[in-house]
């Protein structure tokens, strides 16, 4: 870290912050037994299924975990392409 970073108040994360972040990730994967690879597979297949029926913005698709209390939740956020529906 340079003296400028220090003067500007920038800092490296504390070991507490690093520990918290690492644990967050580890626990999500331990609990759900879902590896990052499996998550990618899920994402690809969700995109494939949904885009058969609706135009979606493939780049914008996000498949993530969230947790509330002791529940892990898989959340898929799928933006529609211009919010127009395909006409069959």
């Amino acid at each position: 870290m340079s003296i400028w970073d220090k003067l500007l108040g920038r800092r490296e994360p504390t070991s507490r912050e690093v520990a918290r972040e690492r644990l967050q990730l580890v626990l999500v994967h331990d609990r759900a037994k879902i590896s990052p690879q499996l998550l990618q597979t899920l994402k690809d297949e969700i995109i494939a299924v949904i885009s058969r029926h609706v135009d979606i913005d493939r780049e914008g698709v996000e498949v993530t975990f969230t947790r509330s209390r002791r529940q892990s939740r898989l959340v898929a956020n799928i933006p529609l392409q211009g919010s127009r529906q395909r006409r069959k």
Binding site: T14, S15, R16, E17, A19, R67, R70
Partner: peptide, 19 residues
């Protein structure tokens, strides 16, 4: 160590384990 931010605080552990 908690004051120096070199240890997980109570709130971190409670939040992570959620019990």
């Amino acid at each position: 160590m908690i004051r120096r931010e070199d240890m997980l605080a109570t709130s971190d552990v409670v939040e992570l384990l959620a019990i």
